[in-house]
Nucleic acid binder design. Structure first.
Length: 272
DNA sequence: CGATTCCCCTGATAGC
DNA sequence: TGCTATCAGGGGAATC
């Protein structure tokens, strides 16, 4: 599923659209839009794309006339850059006609993706962006900051990693990889973590996310880049979905548990 | 107010 | 083989 590295990869590719105009929009899944499709379509026509940025797992398009388009891929969404309206994949739900002969297609098998159009001055509130925590690949994310974020938190480590109001952009795949890399049991209670654990955790958050970006994302299910190509990070995974398989480090059979409703794979020997 | 549950949706997989 | 049941999951809303 698209997490920070996958969204980052898409955003980098989408820079080709900056300076162009959105001419029209068609969709067979109008439920994905806020406000309702008719209004969304009317408002977005003939708006120029001024900037495209990532915030956590959201993509924020800055448009002319003080508008923001905030996109979230949820489970199966991704954009594809095309020259025409012939669907590049089976589950193309929306087509954005862009100036210069570009058609931006939105693929989304499960239809969970959301596209919200709002005024620039209210977009943080409307889209829930204001509640997001620190950007883990940003300069302001440091070891002392991580300690401060977690110091008064209770509960399990992985639950905190998935909490978008603490550190923003980590999902199920990278959370499992970070716990494995830090040799920490995903169900570890935060209040029991040692100073060295925080250090390892901090380093792994940066390391795993950077590796994901470098590998242009993890493709296990549907994720593709804007040219329809998968990423390479799936070839490097040590933990995610590896329950039942031998640990790549020690050979112990990896286990599966649920944490905040998410399947969690870990090595009972390497992760204490 | 925090923690938990439900819900959205489709395709893959398990079970019979 | 072919059917049905179950599972997967991000985040917002509803509920406890």
């Amino acid at each position: 599923m698209p997490e920070l590295p996958e969204v980052e990869t898409q955003v980098r590719d989408l820079q080709a659209l900056v300076g162009r105009k959105i001419l029209d929009l068609t969709s067979d899944t109008p439920k994905s839009f806020r406000p309702d499709f008719k209004e969304f379509q009317r408002k977005i026509r003939n708006k120029k794309i001024l900037a495209i940025e990532r915030r956590a797992k959201f993509i924020v398009f800055t448009l002319s006339q003080n508008l923001k388009l905030v996109v979230h891929f949820r489970m199966t969404g991704h954009f594809l850059l095309a020259q025409d309206f012939i669907p590049l994949e089976k589950a193309i739900r929306h087509f954005f006609k862009i100036s210069g002969g570009i058609v931006l297609q939105f693929s989304d098998i499960r239809k969970f993706g959301t596209l919200v159009l709002c005024e620039e001055k209210s977009h943080l509130k409307v889209c829930g962006l204001a509640k997001l925590g620190v950007e883990p690949l940003g300069e302001s994310f440091t070891l002392p900051v991580l300690r401060e974020i977690l110091q008064n938190k209770k509960g399990k480590l992985k639950a905190a990693l998935l909490d978008q109001t603490l550190v923003a952009g980590i999902g199920n795949i990278y959370a499992d990889e970070i716990c494995f890399g830090a040799s920490l049991h995903p169900a570890s209670l935060i209040q029991n973590l040692e100073p060295q654990d925080f250090k390892n955790l901090f380093q792994e958050i940066k390391k795993q996310l950077r590796k994901g970006v470098r590998n242009r994302g993890t493709t296990i299910g549907e994720y593709r880049d804007t040219r329809g190509r998968g990423g390479k990070n799936q070839n490097t995974l040590m933990a995610y979905k590896r329950h039942g398989l031998p640990c790549k480090i020690c050979g112990t059979k990896m286990r599966k548990i649920k944490i905040v409703q998410r399947t969690t794979s870990f090595c009972p020997k390497c992760q204490k």
